[in-house]
Design a protein around this nucleic acid. Structure first.
Length: 872
RNA sequence: GCCCAGGUGGUGGAAUGGUAGACACUGCGGACUUAAAAUCCGUUGGCCGCAAGGCCGUGCGAGUUCGACUCUCGCCCUGGGCACCA
């Protein structure tokens, strides 16, 4: 039955069933076509299911995928699940179930919800990171990294999350707290596996420039990687020893060398051992030892705390200033980090904030070596590089840049140092002391020597056990399973590595597997993967700027170097979607009531808010979340408004990158828009000429029919451009304008007359409207398509093509300005000459009063746009 | 402190150096209706004016330009990220 309004309950599930029965979204692999790979970030399927907030990225990528398919591309638009990891394990423990069982159920629910919204995923390519057929290859890649020396095990102090009872990578520690648990991280000394991501620092920084990513994300990665160019040089200790001892420092401000008045070693610097041993006075040795022990006690958070006053001890030793030969005292202080640079620094209190604080506190001399270039009084510490050298011997009077260059050359010539590049980021710690992760494919022989598990024994399967709670002592739950731990190969006994890999390992290559997901012989077929990758458009939240996105780039580069893929960046274009915010009720705090940190009111449930007086309740826009109780699920939204209305609303109401405010009124607007389309098509479908394409050029056009065709082709152009630019909000508004124009257009023609030219143009318009609507509202589009007598799915129809001659109008409205101020407009033929246009402008009755009796000193003519007359 | 992103009507936003406020939401007025919903029509940046029309207006202040929401410089505010990395 043909609809005359948007009745989603009558056709949306019908079309979904037909699409899936026909396997409509199976990936097309037609050799003659170009490819397009659209991907959403690998989601963790949470137990609460999707909210309309999550749909914020799935709907737009679906629109893009659908349009690209209609444009003739082979589109890869897959979905899978990031199933391993702590959230799943924690939830399973809380619910007293097994994560494998739980995750499977949750993934099914995600799939159901995504289908409910009509997302065009090729589900035949779906997998979870916890499938052995997938993680076999995660382990295989681990072994590649190991064979290249890019995976190694070492004993060191690590970030221990006491709530999650596992270690965390540096990227997972935010402001000294675990990124998920929010717990203050502690220090723990245990042997751990690392990936040597720092070996790729240079390329990970430089190659950002060739990516079409949001500038902010690129900048965040650059800052995180923290590439710094500087000079590393050695300072001789005044004490004669055999061998002679040197203190190595790294600096990015070699220009300030003359201003060095002390040096500081990190407490963990191995040179401190020598100093303690060689100390001639026991009191210095004792102080050093005591300070070092104290530093080891401090938590990561305490040590890095900004507010903390500087602490440190004098070692009793001195180094020689390489130029001035003055004695420079050596201190130990924990504001210097052992694992950055050389673990020791030259200190220039006059030009470094931290050194200044330290020198002030311990009464160390401060010597200014740079002055403000403008001769203004420069307050210390003076950290600007815009300055002139003073107190620097032959450097005096030079600029900072010149001095830096000269001193760098001097250091290199004297062979006491060289140029050096340092990175702020550290190697990626991958071990986790938890059960629910990909087992690390390593084992140890009876001498404790490490060996990779042989390929033919992969995957190292995660044993299915009932009890997998973390032990909390730094050992993995797997270490309790003797059957798992102890193995024998060719009569030799081995024990397995029992830590698992952090979840980010699993998500560092999933985008590769989608190209060839059912390959049981290898991780992927090279030809297939090189055909589909890199991902053309990748969409997800900005919170992964320095985690997933950095790790995935690193793995891709390693695989590229190994010749396993022929691209060295996985994601060409990246977009970050905004969040969906929902109104959350609050009330003012009463006297004596305590507020949570960062809150300016007491949060209410909607029930509580309904009971209070209206004036006592205020609303804030907050991210949809379970804890805020403001979640709207797609199930509810689809039930109440329909899938297409939900889709159109989310596309229309805010630009893709910006936050979206969820509102009932707003989504009603989308329902209204869809209703108007149904009504329009229903009213004029009796005029639809099925074979309009073959007839439209055989009937002589006239001005009215041409007008329809201009609307149509201008709309095709704008819509196509908008979707490509991720401007989905204007895509929808362009369709609204198109519909408004068509509705006005039909009022201007007499449709009772048998006017073929108009009927053909209207047929074209109706079909175009439906096809352009199809990516946004595919259910409605298919329903409408059928209602005008066509067959098949709009997804399989060609995207409308633009006919250039209809892009320009016969007449254009020209703005006429006098001195840049709009004074009038005029409608003129499109091809009017500049001279005639000027003539029209000067004769415009609204313009005349503004130019009369004045001298025109300049005439600016922009064809098709405006005329600007500059008068005096 | 450093690095990003942003600031436009009552609201969401549009406008990639060329008619600021498209398209919507809300409000107001009207039609239809016994009534309501739905729908349709009109109106909706501010000020002056009966009107024609005029003036002001894109966070603030300068600048470039015939012309600036858009570019440049300096501030202010909001949001996000990093933060003792020498």
């Amino acid at each position: 039955m043909a609809q005359d309004r948007y009745n989603p309950e009558q056709f949306e599930s019908k079309w979904q069933t037909r699409w899936h029965d026909q396997n409509l979204f199976a990936t097309r692999e037609d050799e003659s076509r170009k490819k397009f790979y659209t991907l959403d970030f690998f989601p963790y399927p949470s137990g609460t299911g999707l909210s309309v907030g999550h749909c914020r990225n799935y709907i737009p990528t679906d629109v893009l995928s659908r349009m690209k398919y209609m444009q003739g591309y082979n589109v890869l638009h897959p979905m899978g699940f990031d199933a391993f990891g702590l959230p799943a394990e924690n939830e399973a423990i809380a619910k007293k179930t097994h994560p494998a069982i739980m995750i499977k159920k949750y993934a099914e629910n995600y799939k159901r919800q995504l289908n409910l919204v009509g997302i065009s995923f090729d589900w035949s390519r779906c997998f979870s990171s916890c499938d052995p057929s997938y993680y076999k290859w995660t382990q295989w890649i681990f072994k590649i990294l190991y064979s290249k020396g890019l995976a190694y095990r070492k004993m060191s102090y690590v970030n221990w999350d006491p709530v999650e009872q596992t270690v965390l990578a540096n990227e997972e520690v935010i402001g000294g707290r675990g990124w998920r648990s929010g717990a203050l991280v502690e220090k723990k000394l245990i042997p751990q596996w690392y990936f040597k991501i720092t070996a790729y620092g240079e390329r990970l920084t430089n190659d950002l420039d060739k990516l079409n990513w949001p500038e902010g994300i690129k900048q965040m990665q650059k800052n995180w990687i923290g590439r710094r160019e500087g000079v590393e040089f050695q300072l001789r200790l005044t004490m004669d020893t055999d061998p002679q001892l040197y203190l190595k420092v790294f600096t990015t401000r070699i220009d300030t060398m003359y201003g060095m008045t002390f040096c500081v070693l990190a407490p963990e610097n191995p040179l401190v051992d020598d100093l303690i041993r060689l100390s001639e006075e026991d009191s210095f040795a004792e102080e050093m030892q005591k300070y070092r022990d104290q530093a080891a006690e401090l938590s990561h958070q305490e040590r890095l705390s900004d507010a903390r006053e500087k602490t440190g001890v004098f070692t009793g030793f001195y180094v020689v200033h390489p130029i001035t030969a003055t004695k420079i005292p050596v201190w130990i202080a924990d504001y210097v980090l052992a694992d950055y640079g050389t673990g020791g620094v030259m200190c220039v209190p006059a030009h470094d904030i931290r050194d200044y604080e330290f020198a002030t506190k311990f009464n160390i001399p401060i010597m200014q070596v740079i002055e403000d270039a403008n001769g203004e009084q420069s307050e210390l510490p003076f950290t600007s590089k815009e300055g002139v050298m003073v107190n620097s011997g032959p450097m005096n009077g030079l600029s900072v840049t010149e001095a830096a260059q000269k001193l760098e050359e001097w250091v290199i010539k004297r062979e006491i140092g060289q140029k050096s590049v340092q990175y702020k980021f550290r190697d990626w710690l991958i071990s986790r002391q938890r059960y629910w992760g990909c087992p690390i494919p390593m084992m140890y022989d009876e001498d404790g020597k490490e060996h990779p598990v042989p390929d033919e024994m992969l995957p190292v399967e995660l044993p299915h056990v009932e009890s997998y709670q973390p032990s909390g002592d730094g050992s993995s739950p797997l270490s309790r399973l003797d059957d798992f731990v102890n193995i024998e190969i060719d009569g030799k006994k081995y024990t397995r590595e029992t830590d698992t890999m952090g979840g980010f390992a699993c998500s560092s290559w999933y985008f590769l597997r989608f190209a060839d997901p059912h390959n049981y012989k290898e991780a992927w077929d090279k030809d297939i993967i090189n055909k589909w990758l890199p991902v053309d458009t990748y969409v997800g939240g900005a919170e992964h700027a320095v985690m997933h996105l950095l790790y995935a780039r690193f793995w891709t580069k390693v695989l590229y170097d190994e010749g396993l893929v022929n691209f060295d960046e996985p994601f060409q274009t990246l977009h970050n979607q905004g969040m969906v915010l929902a109104k959350t009720p609050y009330r003012e705090a009463k006297e004596g009531e305590k507020l949570d940190i960062g809150e300016d009111g007491i949060q209410l449930t909607f029930e509580e808010a309904a009971k209070l007086d209206k004036d006592d309740v205020f609303f804030k826009w907050e991210k949809m979340s379970k804890s805020k109780g403001n979640v709207v699920t797609p199930d509810e939204a689809v039930e109440k408004y329909g899938a297409d209305a939900l889709r159109v609303f989310e596309l229309f109401v805010a630009p893709f990158e910006q936050n979206l405010q969820w509102s009932e009124e707003g989504i009603q607007g989308s329902v209204r828009f869809l209703n108007r389309i149904f009504k329009f098509i229903s009213e004029f479908r009796h005029l639809h000429i099925i074979n309009w394409r073959s007839l439209i050029d055989t009937v002589p056009p006239h001005s009215k029919s041409r007008k329809f065709r201009r609307f149509t082709h201008q709309t095709i152009q704008k819509v196509t451009d908008d979707i490509n630019r991720f401007a989905f909000n204007t895509y929808i508004s362009t369709l609204m304008v198109y519909l408004n124009n068509l509705q006005d257009g039909v009022k201007e023609v007499d449709l009772t007359k048998d006017d073929k030219a108009v009927q053909l143009a209207l047929s074209e318009a109706m079909e175009t409207l439906i096809l352009l609507l199809s990516p946004a509202a595919p259910h409605s589009a298919d329903e409408l398509w059928e209602s005008i007598g066509n067959t098949g799915f709009t997804y399989q129809k060609d995207w409308p093509t633009i006919i250039d001659k209809f892009l320009t109008n016969d007449a254009v409205t020209i703005a006429i300005q006098v001195n840049g101020k709009l004074r009038g407009t005029a409608s003129v033929p499109n091809d009017i000459s500049k001279e005639n246009l000027l003539q029209v402008a000067k004769e415009n009755e609204k313009v005349i009063p503004h130019i009369e009796g004045k001298e025109i000193i300049k005439e600016v003519v922009v064809p098709g746009k405006l005329v600007n007359l500059v008068v005096k």
